[in-house]
């Protein structure tokens, strides 16, 4: 995905990538205009857009979107703050690996959104439930990828660093973490996707706040064009967050061979 070329060629490429979406939108519009389906089930693009404008002006959309983004963001943040040290510790200390390894493996098969009802039992329907469920969901990929990243640091790097007289703790910050960063970023990217999924799931299940609650509310009350507007908003937001993270990755890992990125 080269960033070069003239503005017009970049524009052409963007148009080419947008093509399939435009085709889908056209099909959608055609279906609604031809009256093939009940307008209740498939609101026309126009009415969805009107609903979106309405919500945007009323600010409800932005508040709820911000809440969802905050939940996902905080969940991801704590997942990183806990998960990276944990994964690194497991890779560097056999005792830590022996203790935490089985726990991590055991939780692997559990769909983390199933923890939401449990957390409701414990913490009620407040935002803590959502954030906690998100944290636990993001922990798993971050721990696993950090573990593999740290584990996979070529020993020749460690030997070189030792020959240069690197003290042990600097070995971690100057050598191991940078070398493991590509894997860690992959784990964070996956965790980001999970964070959105669990945040939305929790908001739909518990209906406390956020876009999930908004979607659910509109679905229940039959205002389907509003519901679609909310759904599209969060889907686009999640996509943009992913894109933003990829751009961040490309900058932070600019020293990497392009083929090795986004493993």
């Amino acid at each position: 995905m080269s960033g070069g070329g003239t503005a017009s060629s970049r524009g052409m490429r963007l148009l080419s990538k947008a093509g399939p979406f435009l085709i889908c939108l056209a099909i959608w519009q055609a279906i609604t205009m031809l009256g093939i389906t009940d307008p209740a089930f498939l609101p026309g693009l126009g009415s969805i857009w009107a609903a979106f404008r309405d919500l945007a002006v009323e600010k409800t959309l932005w508040i709820d979107l911000a809440t969802s983004l905050m939940t996902a963001g905080l969940g991801l943040l704590f997942g990183i703050l806990i998960g990276v040290p944990l994964g690194a510790a497991m890779a560097l200390s056999p005792r830590a690996d022996g203790f935490f390894g089985p726990i991590v493996k055991a939780t692997y098969s559990l769909p983390k959104s199933a923890l939401v009802p449990l957390f409701v039992l414990w913490f009620g329907v407040g935002g803590l439930t959502n954030i906690l469920a998100t944290v636990l969901t993001t922990l798993l990929p971050i721990v696993i990828y950090t573990y593999h990243g740290v584990h996979g640091v070529p020993r020749l790097f460690l030997w070189s660093a030792a020959a240069f007289g690197t003290p042990r703790w600097k070995l971690l910050t100057r050598i191991i973490l940078p070398a493991a960063l590509p894997a860690i970023f992959t784990g964070i990217r996956i965790a980001l996707g999970f964070a959105f999924i669990v945040t939305i799931a929790a908001e739909m299940i518990v209906s406390n706040h956020g876009i999930g609650k908004l979607m659910f509310f509109f679905g229940d009350s039959g205002s389907y064009n509003y519901m679609f507007a909310a759904v599209i908003t969060i889907v686009v937001a999640a996509y943009l967050a992913d894109r933003a993270f990829v751009i961040l990755t490309d900058y932070v890992l600019r020293w990497q061979e392009p083929a090795e990125r986004h493993a």
């Binding site: 990538k17 093509g19 980001l192 939305i200 979607m215 509109f218 519901m227 999640a238």
Partner: peptide
């Protein structure tokens, strides 16, 4: 490939769970 690639690039990271209300409707 031209048709599917952008859809997959968009759809993969997108939270499909958000479509629960839509699919329940349909």
């Amino acid at each position: 490939a031209w048709f599917v690639d952008p859809l997959v690039a968009f759809g993969s990271p997108a939270p499909k769970l958000a479509l629960i209300p839509v699919f329940t409707l349909w």
